[in-house]
């Protein structure tokens, strides 16, 4: 197997900026974002689609970037945690809520929660506490016990409404 792998050009709009890189077909989207584009905010906690740390928004929908090859999302619009800030670079509503509610400890799982919740609030802008808990039930966090993440979802909904 000394033949070099075939390479493909992948072009995406990431956080509003057109980006491209040339990668093998098997390059995971998570690795593409982290290592080819050096956007390391997206984290990898399992690489088998269970922890949700790698969640990014592709055309607004949350997906697990460790389960997707970069070539399959060529041409898409991707939002990562780096893109969840306000246009002026200040914390976005979900990020601000996490800060206020102590929704993170080590912060490794946090990017996946921030992206997941951002998308969720677009669908359901005023969740109840039970709905908030359900909304994050696909993401693992080993540090916080989720109490303050649930609170963060509710607070983010408030901030989002205030800022709208």
């Amino acid at each position: 197997m000394s033949a070099a792998e075939e390479l493909y050009e992948v072009s995406l709009v990431v956080n509003g900026v057109p980006r491209s890189a040339t990668v093998p077909a098997r390059r995971l989207l998570s690795d593409f974002l982290r290592h080819d584009l050096e956007l390391t905010g997206t984290h990898v906690g399992c690489e088998h689609g269970v922890c949700g740390a790698c969640t990014v928004l592709v055309d607004g929908r949350p997906i697990r970037s460790c389960l997707q090859f970069a070539v399959t999302v060529d041409g898409a619009e991707v939002t990562t945690v780096e893109g969840c800030t306000r246009p002026d670079g200040e914390l976005g509503h979900v990020q601000q809520a996490f800060r206020e509610c102590h929704g993170l400890q080590c912060g490794f799982c946090t990017p996946g929660f921030v992206t997941t919740i951002t998308a969720y609030l677009e669908e359901n802008p005023a969740p109840t506490a039970d709905q908030a808990r359900e909304a994050i039930a696909g993401n693992l966090c080993r540090c916080t016990g989720y109490q303050n993440i649930v609170a963060s979802v509710l607070r983010a909904a408030e901030l989002r409404a205030e800022r709208a």
Partner: peptide
């Protein structure tokens, strides 16, 4: 509030 959070929340952590 934690001083480390803004960095970690915006993807600027360095793991």
């Amino acid at each position: 509030q934690r001083l480390e959070d803004p960095r970690l929340l915006t993807g600027q952590g360095r793991f």
